[in-house]
């Protein structure tokens, strides 16, 4: 393969990867921004989205239906977890880390018991192979990239233009003042947690036809989401998006041109560098 073809493939891989990563990390960023908690179970919501998609598309035969059902089911699970676990411990930062680690294990082991240890595939709703001169590429992956981009824009609009978005931004800026202005902070918290889980679930659902549903698939998603959210600045949605592209494209380029292990090293070094030079991340706000 020529260098141009290599670069083109790197760009394709990087862009699609970045868009899906942005969607996954956006949920984590949202939860951190609004609730000021670190949700370690975020990867488990991603995995759960994939598993629900497998069940719905296998039992009911419709992937598109699964794409709608998965975030709703996973969002509902998150809302229940919020009410039963996070609210009783008062969203205390240290306790929530431990609690969400517990949640992660409960979800993973429940899936292992019910769904089993297998990696099960789901047929892509639309499948075609794009034949470039020197290599072929999955058409579905391109569609995944496109859908992820649309969902990102939709989330952005929802946050910037709707009343709920306004509530979320207000809570993020100052919880007490927001409460004084009659923002139902408790409900905003629950909604943010559910929506964050829903975003992870959509990303999980979109990726199943490419990656298969497996009970451990959330760990990688969690790790990369953390890298992106830290790099972009905790709580900054714009930062999350930019960081996802930085990580996704550098990962795509370095791993195609050099080696995937080097790509991971570069991503980690990038995070270390950003944290050393600019502790709050690329777009992070100062936390008083």
């Amino acid at each position: 393969m020529s260098l141009e073809a290599h670069l083109f493939l790197a760009l394709l891989e990087g862009t699609v990867g970045a868009l899906v990563l942005a969607l996954t990390a956006l949920g984590l960023s949202l939860v951190f921004g609004v609730m000021r908690i670190v949700n370690v179970a975020h990867g488990a919501f991603f995995m759960l989205g994939a598993i629900v998609t497998w069940y719905v598309s296998t039992l009911l035969g419709s992937f598109l239906l699964a794409l709608v059902v998965a975030p709703l089911v996973v969002g509902a699970v998150a809302v229940v977890a919020d009410r039963l676990v996070l609210r009783p411990i008062g969203y205390e930062p240290e306790s929530t880390i431990v609690a969400t680690i517990g949640l992660l294990y409960i979800l993973e082991q429940a899936v292992l018991m019910i769904y089993g240890p297998y990696a099960r595939p789901v047929t892509a709703p639309i499948y075609f192979r794009v034949d470039f001169p020197s290599f072929g590429y999955s058409g579905y992956k391109l569609i995944v990239g496109g859908v992820a981009a649309i969902l990102l824009v939709a989330t952005w609009i929802a946050l910037a233009r709707t009343k709920l978005g306004l509530y979320m931004r207000a809570t993020q800026q100052d919880r007490e003042i927001a409460q004084a202005f009659a923002v139902p902070v408790g409900r905003v918290y629950t909604t943010a947690f559910g929506a964050g889980a829903g975003l992870a679930a959509v990303a999980g659902a979109l990726i199943v036809p490419v990656q298969q549903a497996h009970y451990l698939m959330g760990l990688d998603a969690l790790l990369l989401s953390f890298v992106v959210v830290i790099l972009g600045g905790l709580g900054s949605l714009r930062g999350t998006l930019v960081a996802a592209f930085v990580v996704g494209l550098s990962d795509g380029a370095v791993s195609v041109l050099f080696s995937p292990t080097l790509a991971k090293i570069v991503a980690t070094l990038l995070v270390a560098l950003v944290l050393a030079v600019r502790g709050r991340g690329l777009f992070g706000e100062e936390i008083a």
Partner: peptide
């Protein structure tokens, strides 16, 4: 690497 989830980049 054993944890890899995407392989497109290896085939070139």
């Amino acid at each position: 690497p054993p944890t890899e989830t995407s392989f497109t980049k290896y085939f070139p």
